[in-house]
């Protein structure tokens, strides 16, 4: 009996093994999507609650499980974007508006400022950001991304094109600033 079968037959240690095996994958995806550790951990729990509840519904092997878990995670990320649209105040904006950043904030703010590509990444909408995460963080092939997101491969390509070119633009702007 493989791990998936053990889990589906109600073996609690198999569920724990799956959690420990895939928690980093889920957590990091969520962390890149929302940039907040607490929220990412919350989303990790949400993902595995869904796994726990859907034990009887899942059909497939561990590879299928991994894809299914990606899909669950991505859907949670999309939902979180829907629930909480971009924060009205960024750290930088608050600084400009005359708020004094907290003691520990300047180092983080500096890190944020330096990483122009991350700033641009955050400005992407959810569906583009998730394709970028699946491709350049998880290094998944287009076909798998298409399956996970349930979209045609052509859409994966066009989203990546749009996203990378937006990011490239941000990078070019940054280099322009450095020159001037």
């Amino acid at each position: 009996m493989d791990l998936i079968q053990q889990w589906q037959s109600g073996d609690s240690s198999a569920f724990e093994t799956l959690f420990r095996r895939y928690k980093d994958m889920v957590f990091r995806t969520a962390l890149l999507a929302v940039s907040d550790e607490c929220q990412a951990e919350d989303m990790l729990q949400e993902a595995f609650v869904k796994v726990y509840k859907s034990r009887g519904k899942f059909k497939g092997d561990e590879n299928g499980f991994r894809q299914w878990l990606y899909r669950i995670t991505i859907n949670i990320c999309i939902d979180s974007h829907r629930r909480e649209p971009a924060s009205p105040f960024s750290l930088e904006e608050m600084g400009e508006a005359g708020f004094e950043p907290a003691e520990t904030a300047p180092a983080y703010a500096k890190f944020e400022e330096k990483d122009a590509i991350w700033k641009a990444m955050k400005s992407l909408d959810g569906k583009h950001r998730l394709v970028v995460i699946l491709r350049y963080f998880h290094e998944l092939p287009y076909e798998e991304i298409a399956e996970i997101l349930d979209i045609p491969i052509g859409t994966v390509k066009s989203r990546l094109n749009t996203a990378i070119r937006t990011l490239r633009g941000a990078l070019a702007d940054e280099e322009g600033k450095e020159v001037t």
């Binding site: 724990e16 959690f19 420990r20 928690k23 980093d24 957590f27 990091r28 962390l31 890149l32 940039s35 550790e37 990412a40 951990e41 990790l44 729990q45 990483d115 590509i117 991350w118 990444m121 970028v132 995460i133 350049y136 963080f137 990378i164 990011l167 490239r168 990078l171």
Partner: peptide, 23 residues
Amino acid sequence: ATQYRLRQSFAARASKAPSPRAW
């Protein structure tokens, strides 16, 4: 170069693991 920077940025931000209390 954009892809390279993106991967670098991801690696820097997603090296973290969930807290030990996650389970």
